[in-house]
């Protein structure tokens, strides 16, 4: 029997989760799916594979969209090696945003972005959560504390005394080479 090429995945965290059909080559980006494929026979894989993560079907759909688009990219295996489409070992390269990735992330609202990060972390899709984290890091790079709060929609939970104490520690986290440069 030919190996199963389409996997059916359903989020059972809440009742009534959508059943997603995902190409095997795409699903193999997930460390969790790789483990399941190792443990299950092909006959088991014909059934729906349950996953349980606190994200909406909309968020999960975006994850599978990225996986499907990136199905031919090298995949990280559970032993840490990186494998090409023919399962041969390839050298790991630092991740960079492709034009498609840029459009993909730029089009997300913050809710979808955080859902992708949560789902990618649960499904152990290393390149996706690394790109997602990099995307968030780029959003806050060079911003002030107040701007970061606004971008990430975070309200400060420091009391005024705590905040003042941390602000007074500013000299601590400043490196002396900067002082010398300014002088």
């Amino acid at each position: 029997m030919a190996p199963i090429q389409i996997l059916k995945l359903q989020n059972t965290f809440k009742p009534g989760g959508k059943v997603f059909e995902v190409e095997r080559a795409a699903a193999e980006h997930s460390g969790l799916v790789q483990m399941l494929l190792q443990d299950f026979d092909d006959s088991d894989l014909e059934a729906i594979i349950p996953i349980s993560v606190d994200v909406s079907d909309k968020g999960l759909a975006k994850v599978f969209e990225w996986m499907t688009h990136s199905k031919d990219l090298p995949k990280t295996t559970d032993d840490g090696s990186v494998r090409g489409p023919d399962d041969s070992a390839v050298n790991w390269k630092p991740l960079t945003f492709s034009d498609w990735d840029k459009k993909f992330f730029d089009a997300l609202d913050s809710e979808a972005l955080y859902e992708i990060l949560i789902a990618a972390n649960y499904l152990d899709i290393k390149p996706l959560y690394e790109l997602g984290c990099q995307f968030v890091a780029n959003m806050i790079r060079g911003k002030t504390t107040e701007q970061i709060r606004e971008i990430l929609n975070i309200t400060s939970d420091f009391n005024p005394e705590e905040e003042l104490r941390i602000r007074e520690q500013k000299a601590l986290v400043k490196d002396e080479s900067e002082t010398a440069e300014k002088n």
């Binding site: 806050i140 970061i148 400060s156 941390i166």
Partner: peptide, 13 residues
């Protein structure tokens, strides 16, 4: 993020 951003992040929450 860069070291300068880490300093800003300390005060966020």
């Amino acid at each position: 993020v860069d070291p300068e951003d880490l300093r800003a992040l300390r005060l966020v929450s």
